[in-house]
Amino acid sequence: MGNFVFDLIGKNIVAALVICIIPLVFILPYALIAILGELKIGAWMQDRVGPMRTGWKGVLQPVAEVVKLLQKEDITPTIANKPLFNLAPFIVFIGAFAAFAVLPFSEKFIPSGINLGLFFVFAVGSFAVIGIVMGGWASNNKYSLLGAMRSVAQIISYELPAGMVFLSIATIAGTLDMQTIILNQSGPIWNWYIFGGPQGGAIKFLFIPFFVILFIVYLISSLAETNRTPFDIPEGESEIVAGYHTEYSGMKFAMFFMAEYANMYVVSAIIVILFLGGWSSPFGTSFMDGPIWGIFWMVGKAFFFVFVQIWLRWTLPRLRVDQLMYLGWKVLLPLSIACFMAIAFLAMIN
C-alpha cells in the first residue's frame, strides 16, 4: 500500500506535482481512445465502417478531431456573460478531474489515499452541476438554459440511488477508503462485491441478487450522471440543439467534451472498484497479480465499462423527461433502499 511516487522521489512538492500530472497524462490518450471507440463501435453497430481515411483504418481520426477543435475559432456570443461563459468549461472539467484524485490505478498508485475516497467522489460531482448551470445561464440562449436545467434536475435525481449504492458498499466494507475496499475483494473472484463480498460463508449467496441489483442500479445512475444516452436529454439534439454547450466552440467545447469522457472513466472505475475488485486479478492473488498487473486489470475493467456505455448509447433511444424521473425516483431509489437494508442486515449478521 502507498504511493510509488513517494517511494521514488520522497514526500516533497515535486512528488506532489508528479502525482497531480499522472491522471492528466492518463486522461488525454484515454479520451482519444474513447472517442475512436465511440466512432468505430457506433459505426460497426450500424453496419457501417466508420472513419477510414485518417491513418490506418482511421485510427488517427480522434487526433484529427482534437486538432480541428483546437484550431477552431473561439466564439463568444456578444450577449453572453463573458466571465462566467469562459469559466464554466473549466469548472466542469475540474469536477471530472478532481474525482481522479481518489481513483486508484494500482496497489501502488492512488493519487490521494484519503480515507474518504467514496464520499469525495460523490461530493466533487457537484462541481459539474455548478459548471453546467453556469455555462447554460451565461450563454444567454434558451436552449442552453433548458439543457442546464434538465441536466441539473437529472444529476441531482440520480445522485440519490448512486448514494444508496455507495452507502451499501461502505456498510458491508466498513470503510470509505478506495484501497481498503479493493483490498477486501482481493483473492478469488467470488470475493468481489458483485458476488457478495469476502465474508459471510454460505449465507452470503442468498444476498447475491441484492448486490447484482445494486450493480445495475449504479450502472444506470452513472449513465444518467454523465449525461450519456439514453439519459442525454440535457443534450438532446432533436429538442434543444446541444443543451448547455450549444454556444461553445473550439477549446471550450473541447473542455466539455474532455470532461464528459473523463467522467465516463470515473464512473466506470467506481463500478469496478465497488463491485469488481478494482485492481485485483480475477485469478486470485497468485496469478497475474501485483502492482503492474494491477494497472492492467483496473484500466482494462474500467475500459470494459466505457465500452458498455458506448454500447448502450448505440442501442437505446433517448428517454422522455417524465420517464427519466419515474425511473430515478420510483424504480431505482426504492430498489436501492431495499437492497441497502438487505445488505445492512448481511453486514450485521457477519
Binding site: 460523490f122 457537484s126 455548478i130 448551470v133 441539473v152 445522485e159
Partner: peptide, 22 residues
C-alpha cells in the same frame, strides 16, 4: 478535518449553492 471539508463541498456546493442559483 477531512470529513468536514468534504461535507462542506457536498452540502454547500452540491446542495445549497445549486438551490440558490436555481
Amino acid at each position: 478535518a477531512d470529513f468536514l471539508a468534504i461535507s462542506q463541498i457536498m452540502i454547500y456546493i452540491g446542495g445549497i449553492l445549486v438551490l440558490i442559483i436555481f
